Amino acid sequence: MDALLRSLTRAAAIIVLIMLGGVIISLVDGALPALKTFGFSFVTTESWNPVTEKFGAAAPIYGTLVTAFIAMLIGVPISIGIAIFITELCPRPLKRPISTAIELLAGIPSIIYGIWGLFVLAPLLQAYVQPALIGTFENVPMLNNLFAGPPYGIGVLTAALILSIMVLPFITSITRDVFETVPAMLKESAYGLGCTTWEVVRYIVLPYSRTGIIGGIMLGLGRALGETMAVTFVIGNAHKIHASLLAPGTTISASIANEFTEADGVMYTSSLIALGLILFIITFIVLAAARLLLLRMQKAEGRH
């Protein structure tokens, strides 16, 4: 029986590796015409013109990285704060309803987020938030460029806000589950020594569960990097790099979703597949860096 179990699990692992290899080979094969034609300039060029068959991935790459970064900048602190509240501060009757509500957010289809963002969030931002940001930072160096231009409503910042809402339930759920694995004896001992709730969270809960927290953050980041439909609705889908976060932009996944069905010709299709390959590489680098960080943290803990 043990030999059968070993064989089945080994076969499952090998199948996963074969599927991953097949995806990589397909992406590379489809992207070769564009990569051979444009070379490294494909990554650094902003131009995207299907008529003249001049393609560059700089704008989608920029939009993907910026929206994901802003989404994590907003979503991670809020997610960790909610998890701390649920596990350490929330009254017992409210724990289950709040936890259920967070998990329901994760089950909402991305297209629903996109529709809500386009018809509810974007008009609110256009009418109130974006004019306030423009007026507040218009005389502040550097920030006046980040928040410049007319308030379109849609744009990079709107897409990032939608993404921050979408990653929040994933990071919160994992972080909450990790916090609940902290031994009660450790926390009770800290309280017995006179520690406050903040000190228990800072010195006991967070250090004990930081590996799991980073895992949850990486899961959320993967969702932010690859999200398609919600971003497509609200980012504006413009192949331009603007200094302002209020201006329309695009991401790799949004560009592929918008244009793949209309792609006519080998070069156009190959360029879109090359975008998919770049997104795969970005995601792989992020996950590899996270894994390396976790290994270093584990080694550091072993030394102490």
Score class of each variant (00 low, 15 high):
residue 161 L to A: 09
residue 98 I to P: 01
residue 224 A to N: 01
residue 167 V to H: 00
residue 144 N to C: 10
residue 269 T to L: 13
residue 123 P to M: 14
residue 292 L to R: 15
residue 193 L to C: 12
residue 56 G to M: 05
residue 125 L to E: 02
residue 252 I to C: 03
residue 78 I to N: 01
residue 221 L to N: 00
residue 232 T to E: 05
residue 262 E to A: 15
residue 247 A to F: 09
residue 189 S to L: 08
residue 294 L to Y: 09
residue 129 V to A: 14
residue 143 L to F: 14
residue 278 I to S: 04
residue 48 W to Q: 01
residue 279 L to M: 14
residue 240 K to V: 13
residue 14 I to T: 11
residue 185 M to V: 15
residue 86 I to Y: 01
residue 101 A to H: 06
residue 148 A to M: 05
residue 7 S to E: 10
residue 302 G to V: 12
residue 219 L to W: 02
residue 188 E to W: 12
residue 57 A to S: 12
residue 46 E to L: 12
residue 7 S to K: 12
residue 85 F to Q: 03
residue 298 Q to H: 15
residue 229 M to A: 09
residue 121 L to Q: 04
residue 158 T to K: 02
residue 52 T to D: 13
residue 302 G to K: 14
residue 54 K to T: 12
residue 149 G to I: 04
residue 287 L to V: 14
residue 167 V to I: 15
residue 297 M to C: 11
residue 282 I to E: 03
residue 235 I to R: 00
residue 241 I to Q: 06
residue 75 G to F: 00
residue 272 L to K: 01
residue 111 I to V: 15
residue 65 L to D: 03
residue 99 S to V: 05
residue 232 T to F: 09
residue 61 I to Y: 01
residue 107 G to H: 09
residue 279 L to P: 02
residue 55 F to D: 00
residue 240 K to I: 13
residue 149 G to P: 03
residue 31 A to P: 02
residue 7 S to P: 02
residue 44 T to D: 08
residue 251 T to M: 04
residue 241 I to A: 07
residue 223 R to K: 12
residue 70 I to T: 05
residue 11 A to W: 10
residue 55 F to V: 04
residue 27 L to S: 09
residue 284 F to K: 15
residue 239 H to Y: 13
residue 54 K to F: 07
residue 68 A to E: 00
residue 31 A to I: 04
residue 25 I to T: 13
residue 122 A to D: 03
residue 10 R to E: 11
residue 229 M to D: 05
residue 29 D to Y: 11
residue 180 E to W: 05
residue 221 L to H: 01
residue 206 L to N: 06
residue 27 L to G: 04
residue 98 I to F: 08
residue 81 G to N: 10
residue 270 S to Y: 03
residue 46 E to I: 12
residue 181 T to D: 11
residue 34 A to R: 00
residue 81 G to Q: 06
residue 294 L to Q: 13
residue 77 P to M: 06
residue 153 G to D: 03
residue 80 I to W: 01
residue 269 T to P: 02
residue 102 I to T: 02
residue 212 G to F: 03
residue 115 I to M: 06
residue 285 I to Q: 14
residue 151 P to R: 06
residue 231 V to M: 07
residue 277 L to I: 12
residue 10 R to M: 12
residue 302 G to Q: 14
residue 283 T to E: 05
residue 246 L to V: 08
residue 207 P to T: 07
residue 243 A to D: 14
residue 274 A to G: 08
residue 234 V to Q: 03
residue 258 N to Y: 06
residue 253 S to N: 07
residue 178 V to M: 06
residue 149 G to V: 05
residue 120 V to I: 15
residue 234 V to K: 01
residue 50 P to I: 07
residue 135 G to N: 13
residue 115 I to N: 02
residue 186 L to S: 06
residue 37 T to R: 12
residue 226 G to P: 02
residue 97 P to Q: 07
residue 63 G to A: 08
residue 238 A to M: 11
residue 153 G to H: 02
